[in-house]
Design a binder for these strands. Structure first.
Lengths: 240, 240
DNA sequence: GAGTGGTCTAGACCACGAA
DNA sequence: TCGTGGTCTAGACCACTCC
């Protein structure tokens, strides 16, 4: 066993964290002041602040100007979800077939990408499979700005935000997504080897650049008996 | 107009952030060292570190021991989603009817809550509505440990994690959730004023305490034509 | 005015990576 | 060995809150 040296500020934050988790410090309760903690632990104010800082980041406590630090209420109102990114292809799913073409935007595409009807748009279509079983149909639209979509083979490996970034010369910094239940239509059903009207889950995602301009739109339709969305929510962001 | 004084470390982080967003600093590129930055901005290393710290927290850069700071690759693989918490009742939806009872766990409940079959379990059932239109059926199970479920009226106002915490004397620190498409059964359909077999979205959530023990299980079934799940993903956590 | 959090300095020393 | 990031000190001053 090696006596691992731990930074003092980590010892302080761990100590306070434990007291919070054990209920010795209750939500809403005020912590000792920075100067008191500094004296208690025999360190300077800056070191104490560093420890308190990590607790603030992780959501255990918060500070009020001129008053003090207080123990936060644990909440679970937001969750984190894995989106169809790079790992989606690499690890879980394998793309079975893909198609890339350029088309003119119809009304729906124009709305989603905030371009005028008739604009050039790059479309990619994939079938995602788990082993030999097709699970999802994936259709993506990128507003066409520069460069040719000569990278058919690259498309299935890189993740969508990266492809969009390359084609639009913009960085994707935000995306919105929605998840809804749908009935599969004939095309989707036959591609996913099931019957029309079967239960499906549709995950839609729109990518935006820094200025809030839509750069890409993806729509994935899954067989709901083979895939469901899952995620985690934690009241404290740090490792417990 | 008031000339707002901004902290030096914020000026530094803003400056670097702009250079990253404008592409003057590319992903993978190394930043000037702490001492170089200190000299450039005419401040001490500690002040520079504070500025770099916020950029690390927000995911713009990362540091490598003994080497330097590097510009991070933007990723969008995880998203944040709003879960049925307090705001779910308070703002969007109104609970129309509720029911509270105690029952013995069947196999399914026992599995979810990690208790033995036949254990006492508290069950609450709500109908959630948007205006006059019923949108979702919500059913929640709490492993019964102490205290009586005397708080029928309180149940519809507090959020689930809080109720669970009060009944189990434990803090809810984690939850997992899943979202899947379902067909509504007769009971659900009639409660939601639609026909059996209609499209539904089912959001399931399990709450855990610090030791990973399940404390509660909730299952919400929505009319998919009146509700869909949505969320946001951002590559940088700070405000841009 | 006393107590609090927030910023900043000018040093010091340690741990790590690469040459 | 040198340059890098990571930790820490012993002060100082400012801004805010409450009495």
């Amino acid at each position: 066993m090696k006596a691992r040296v731990k930074a003092i500020y980590n010892q302080i934050s761990d100590d306070l964290k434990n007291r919070i988790m054990q209920g010795k410090l209750s939500p809403g309760e005020m912590l000792p002041s920075q100067s008191q903690l500094a004296e208690t632990y025999g360190v300077t104010q800056m070191t104490v602040r560093q420890g308190l800082g990590t607790l603030v980041e992780d959501g255990y406590i918060y500070s009020v100007w001129g008053k003090g630090y207080f123990v936060a209420e644990p909440t679970l109102e937001t969750g984190i979800i894995n989106l169809p990114g790079r790992n989606f292809f690499g690890q879980e799913f394998t793309p079975m077939m893909n198609e890339v073409d350029i088309l003119r935007a119809d009304q729906e595409i124009a709305d989603k990408l905030a371009v005028i009807v008739g604009s050039k748009v790059i479309r990619t279509q994939l079938t995602l499979a788990l082993g030999d079983n097709p699970v999802a149909l994936d259709c993506r639209y990128i507003s066409y700005r520069k460069g040719e979509p000569q990278l058919e083979n690259e498309l299935q490996y890189a993740d969508f935000p990266q492809i969009v970034a390359r084609h639009t010369n913009s960085v994707v910094v935000k995306s919105t997504f929605s998840i809804e239940a749908v009935h599969l239509n004939e095309i989707e059903a036959s591609a996913l080897e099931t019957s029309p009207g079967a239960l499906g889950l549709c995950v839609e995602q729109i990518l935006y650049d820094v200025n809030g301009k839509p750069l890409g739109w993806s729509r994935m339709v899954c067989r709901s008996d083979r895939y469901k969305v899952s995620g985690v929510a934690q009241s404290y962001s740090g490792k417990v």
